[in-house]
């Protein structure tokens, strides 16, 4: 169930067989949730964290009145709320954007990990640092990149993150989001999102069609975005 999670961890570090057994042993169950479901509600007390097994989820802050900002997209293999272990509640929602399956990890198991597995603890600490790096990159996009570069950057980031877990095929990946959800990632309105998609399509760079992102020219997409993947910390090394 959590094979993609292990793929993601092993892209950045060496995970021993014993550590893998400990991670697998921590999964207490699974949950299937339909699209548009809040999986973890902001400010609710939490005792379990969720590994995304399939589907697309997000971290979302909501100002009300339809004004909401997605602050990170989660792809299969992500521990969507391991930060909830130390925070005890989240300052944002975790929302299933598509039908999702999650593997559930009780905080008692994470507590045991911090006491018995120093290296794994550092691996998951790295994971929260990586999420913070992604948030910084999104802040940079929202503050300083124009709409076209912002969209191109998001598509580049997802390309790298989905490729790590084997979900990019022939330059394309599934992203079954609506225009409204995409616009909530980019901080622009849906018609502006649609206009920006059309521009990137007409330039032969990338296409967003039927819930799929089809990258026609990855080098051009990266150039439009000003994409530098170093913030995704892709080297495998001892953490």
């Amino acid at each position: 169930m959590i094979d993609k999670h292990l793929l993601k961890l092993r892209a950045r570090d060496v995970i021993s067989a014993e550590e893998e057994a400990f991670i697998r042993g921590g999964v207490s169950g699974s949950a299937k949730v339909p699209r548009d479901t809040v999986v973890v509600r902001a400010f609710d007390p939490i005792h379990t964290s969720n590994i995304l097994v399939s589907g697309i989820a997000c971290r979302l802050k909501d100002l009300g009145n339809g004004r909401r900002q997605i602050t990170e997209l989660h792809v299969p293999g992500d521990f969507t709320d391991v930060h909830g272990f130390s925070l005890k509640y989240l300052d944002h929602d975790i929302l299933a954007l598509t039908d999702c399956q999650f593997a559930l990890v009780p905080h008692a198991h994470l507590q045991e990990m911090t006491e018995r597995h120093a290296h794994l603890t550092r691996v998951y600490w790295f994971g929260t640092n990586l999420d913070a790096a992604i948030h910084r990159e999104w802040a940079l996009s929202l503050g300083r990149r124009d709409a076209t570069a912002r969209m191109a950057h998001l598509f580049c980031e997802l390309y790298v993150r989905l490729e790590l877990v084997g979900l990019v095929r022939q330059g394309a990946y599934d992203l079954p989001l609506t225009q409204v959800e995409l616009s909530d990632c980019l901080g622009i309105t849906p018609v502006h999102t649609n206009r920006t998609l059309q521009q990137l399509r007409s330039e032969g760079v990338v296409e967003f069609r039927s819930g799929q992102v089809i990258v026609h020219d990855l080098a051009a997409l990266e150039a439009v975005a000003g994409f530098d993947p170093r913030y995704l910390y892709l080297q495998r090394m001892q953490r």
Binding site: D146, A147, I188, T189, P190, V191, H192, R195
Partner: peptide
């Protein structure tokens, strides 16, 4: 629609 127009023109 008006909010969408303002967003596009702002850019």
């Amino acid at each position: 629609a008006a909010a969408n127009i303002r967003d596009i023109l702002a850019e």
